[in-house]
């Protein structure tokens, strides 16, 4: 069996980011935040370093969620809703902070998903036959 790093090419930072961003928007429309881990895992396939996987996952989902929020602000009163929510904590008027926190949470979901994905790929590739092992070592270098 071919190693995962062979199946999924290293696309570089920007293409991986774009894929992550698109995936984060599409999967978030399912309403299941846990899928952002999956987005991070998938995005990690297209980069090779852990820190890059985290960064791509984080910023991809962060920006993806921000896009959704912008849409919701324009069409579905997301800002008053955020204001209402933070008002429950006695911080009325800081709705933007809720949106920022939410987006950061999304980013962390994607980022940690990326880290996890990268670790899984590395371990799986390590376990695969030697023929592919050389390639993996090269990639990890």
């Amino acid at each position: 069996m071919r190693k995962l790093n062979v199946i999924f090419p290293d696309l570089g930072l920007f293409p991986a980011f774009v894929i992550t961003l698109v995936l984060s928007i599409v999967l978030q429309l399912s309403g299941a935040w846990i899928t952002m881990f999956l987005v991070g895992v998938l995005s990690s396939m297209f980069v090779r370093r852990h820190r890059t996987a985290f960064g791509v996952g984080f910023f991809g989902v962060f920006i993806g969620w921000l896009f959704i929020f912008v849409y919701l602000i324009l069409t579905a009163q997301a800002l008053p809703i955020a204001d209402f929510f933070i008002g429950l904590l006695g911080l009325g008027g800081l709705g933007w902070l809720v949106i920022a926190i939410s987006s950061i949470i999304g980013g962390l979901l994607g980022g940690f998903g990326g880290l996890l994905g990268r670790s899984i790929v590395d371990l799986v590739d390590e376990l695969l036959p030697n023929e592919a092992g050389k390639e993996t070592k090269d990639n990890n270098r």
Binding site: G31, W65, I68, L72, A78, F85, I101, G106
Partner: peptide
């Protein structure tokens, strides 16, 4: 805090 996700949480009431 899961209800803070943009889709599937509290923001859906606006839709």
């Amino acid at each position: 805090l899961q209800i803070l996700q943009p889709w599937g949480g509290i923001f859906d009431v606006g839709k």
